[in-house]
Design a protein around this nucleic acid. Structure first.
Ligand code: SF4
Ligand code: SF4
Lengths: 143, 143
DNA sequence: AAATTTTAAGATAATTTTATCTTAAATTTG
DNA sequence: CAAATTTAAGATAAAATTATCTTAAAATTT
């Protein structure tokens, strides 16, 4: 569905949204340790979000990453797109290379709808996800 | 979402359902050539369906594969399960290892519903897919 | 200024998935 | 029976993804 890289990244931005409070930057090490993710892999992936303009980063002690865009404006779709690309939401579920909409296979109508729904599901802001986690009174992010 | 192996296999069984007519066995070579798939990869994957009891196979000239179960009884879900396992339809979209249903994250309710819908989408028999392709008057399977 | 911390960038390695090849076994054909 | 055809099984290789490591650059701390 979506890659591990994208899943890790989504969890990371949710973590940042939840725990940045008034800090300027949150270190990737802290995120990786708390979420039990590989620091190396996460670093590489979050860098993509930096390059996509979603996060900003800062080097040195006190360094780390933080939102560049307002988390209210960052949708999970944006994370997935930056990491995996948008292909999933445009792809054929059966892997046909060429296929006409005008003469679709038996599951196309269903798939076209699901694809849209999956897109909609991820079309939710990081802030909203974080707020809902908070409102559920979850004390620590589950790992 | 589902692996290439599963997609290839689904297309192959649909092909068999469409073109077996009264033949005892359809050679994997024929399927691979028509669908423009790797004979090697397809052979290996269809063998899994044989072992799962969905197809049966026969060696030698006139050999090949064909349905062991009635294609009316074979759902796309069965193909996917035999090839990829059922994990997708039980998995967490964010990749959390532990997560309680009683205190779910913001997208869990949506994901749980989508997961179910995706399952339902694939819970369609090979026969039904083949029949709908036929009724749509598609002359050749699109590749 | 030197040592330390942290991201940046790119090399390297491990794992998983996909693809290919080889040999063997079963079956048919001639 | 010999040759040809086709799946079976497992080895090997290529590609993609995931994971790790190394060195450099930027910033802070001492
Ligand atoms: S019609 Fe079927 S095979 Fe073609 S793109 Fe849609 S889902 Fe895929
Ligand atoms: S609650 Fe969210 S994180 Fe947990 S299993 Fe459901 S979708 Fe995954």
């Amino acid at each position: 569905m979506i890659t591990e890289a994208a899943k890790d990244s989504i969890r990371a931005v949710i973590y940042i949204a939840l725990y940045r409070e008034d800090r300027e930057f949150i270190s990737i090490k802290e995120i990786a340790q708390t979420l039990n993710l590989s620091f190396y892999f996460l670093s590489k992936n979050l860098l993509k979000l930096v390059k996509a303009g979603i996060l900003e980063s800062f080097r040195g002690p006190k360094g780390g990453v933080n939102f560049k865009k307002d988390p209210k404006e960052v949708k999970l779709i944006d994370i997935i797109s930056a990491i995996d690309g948008t292909y999933i939401f445009e792809s054929c579920i059966l892997g046909f290379k060429e296929c006409s909409e005008t003469n679709p296979c038996a599951i196309h109508n269903k798939w076209a709808e699901e694809r849209k729904r999956l897109y909609d599901m991820f079309n939710i802001s990081v802030k909203k996800v974080a707020d809902e986690i908070k409102s559920g009174e979850i004390k620590n992010i589950k790992i």
